[in-house]
């Protein structure tokens, strides 16, 4: 996960606390999405960024999991094409494993 983003998420968690914060992912691939979910929950597994060894305990959801929360017209316009293209189940299952 991008090191700048790790720093920003760390700052936001310090500001708002983990209970009122979720991370929404838009990754195109299961492994990379899982890595991002893992980074914000248990820490950066690659030990490269500010979240190395830092367990924020944040819950991450892929945007595909939040379909029911989104205005259908917006989802249609912004996400539906990618839903047709990507391995939705594989990505969602991978992300879910890091929510405990």
């Amino acid at each position: 996960m991008d090191l700048e983003n790790q720093a920003r998420i760390k700052e936001l968690t310090a500001k708002y606390g983990k209970d009122d914060l979720i991370v929404v992912l838009g990754g195109a691939e299961a492994e990379a999405s899982g890595l991002a979910a893992e980074t914000v929950s248990t820490g950066d597994p690659t030990f490269a960024g500010p979240l190395s060894g830092v367990s924020l305990g944040l819950k991450a959801y892929h945007i595909f999991e939040l379909k029911d929360e989104i205005d259908p017209a917006v989802y249609e316009e912004q996400i539906s094409m990618m839903e047709m293209v990507l391995e939705v189940d594989e990505i969602v299952n991978e992300v879910k494993t890091y929510r405990g």
Binding site: E29, E31, A32, S80, M81, M82, M84, V85
Partner: peptide, 25 residues
């Protein structure tokens, strides 16, 4: 972990064509 970039683009172009009714899913 960045996948097959050209193939991802081809699938997106295909999906856009499906959405435009030019191609069967």
């Amino acid at each position: 972990g960045a996948g097959d970039v050209p193939m991802a683009n081809y699938k997106m172009i295909g999906a856009l064509s499906v959405k435009r009714g030019e191609l069967d899913k």
